[in-house]
Write a protein that binds this DNA or RNA. Sequence first.
DNA 1: TGCATATATGGTAAAATAGCCATAAAGCCA
DNA 2: TGGCTTTATGGCTATTTTACCATATATGCA
Lengths: 111, 111
Amino acid sequence: MTDEEKFKSESRAVILKAIAHPSRIFIVDKLNEKSYCVCELADLIGIDQSTASKHLSILKKAGIIDDTKKGTTVYYSLRCKCLLDFIGCIENVIKMNIERDSKYLFTVNKV
Amino acid sequence: MTDEEKFKSESRAVILKAIAHPSRIFIVDKLNEKSYCVCELADLIGIDQSTASKHLSILKKAGIIDDTKKGTTVYYSLRCKCLLDFIGCIENVIKMNIERDSKYLFTVNKV
DNA sequence: TGCATATATGGTAAAATAGCCATAAAGCCA
DNA sequence: TGGCTTTATGGCTATTTTACCATATATGCA
């Protein structure tokens, strides 16, 4: 890899790694509906408030979400609408995998 | 999270985590042009052959790439074309981040 | 002011990930 | 058959990630 290619791949990996966690994907999906504050998300996911806060700071640092303060409450919102197509693509891969796996099962049962 | 939501988020995370690594993003990007074998990719990236093989097996397990054997050589190819839009979305976030950061720099310099 | 609520952060232990080396497995060819 | 090439996998260590607890910070309200 050239230095430029390396930089490019690393930049992309930062964004992807930020979303690549069950709780954080869930957050991105939820924020698509509306804004949520930290404790709401922590409750929804069922994790510690401090853990939720850290997840949100990772997403924020990657530029995926934005925050707005209202009193002591911090509301987080999605920064980029394209993340929906993004998730759509992942779903597409999952569907393909399910099809492949069921074909495999069919073959096995057939024997 | 309900069990269903948990399962959904975890399934999505598997796909995302598979791509969320500099070398693996590079591979996905390269495979868009054409198929490559393991040693070619290892050379292109500049990593050990065994490391490349492990990266490829992660991508394959996630259903992102397919493989075809020709003699001892194994050619890997992209399984889902939608991964391009995927990368396009990441690039979009990166662009937004650059814009944000340059605005910040501008503000700082102004003071 | 004193207390409750909301969030962020440092510490820490456990788990997951990444990379290389060594080596096994499989196929090609002289 | 024997050697060469290509790929996959086990072993190992170093690094990173994750989640909780404890605690600091900040805001609102009685």
